[in-house]
């Protein structure tokens, strides 16, 4: 199969993720969309790795996963504490830099 198709898929996934970040209000969904965008990037990296015939892309994909994992931990913690104080997970409610 032509590796370019993987790139098309990555672009599609990234677009879906970006759209989700922009239009959804629920913080959890926004968060999942961000993960989607990250994974779209990972897909693209792996595809590029394949196309160029070296391992650089795969290595960066690992880095991305590590960053994503760290981000999930911090992000979820923030969302949970926000939800506790406001009883809502809407991103629009948190428009001020205070609780």
């Amino acid at each position: 199969m032509n590796p370019v198709n993987y790139l098309y898929l990555a672009a599609l996934l990234f677009s879906i993720g970006a759209t989700g970040v922009l239009i959804r209000r629920n913080a959890i969904v926004v968060f999942m969309c961000i993960e989607l965008m990250l994974n779209a990037c990972n897909l693209a990296f792996v595809a590029f790795s394949r196309m160029h015939g070296n391992l650089d892309g795969q290595i960066i994909a690992f880095f991305t996963m590590v960053v994503a994992a760290a981000e999930v931990v911090v992000g979820l913690a923030i969302i949970v504490s926000l939800f506790r104080s406001r009883h809502s997970a809407s991103v629009d409610d948190a428009s001020l830099m205070k609780l």
Partner: peptide
């Protein structure tokens, strides 16, 4: 600078 994360995301995008 309205504080809405989504509008910042738009400008970033």
């Amino acid at each position: 600078q309205n504080g809405y994360a989504r509008s910042y995301a738009v400008s970033m995008l």
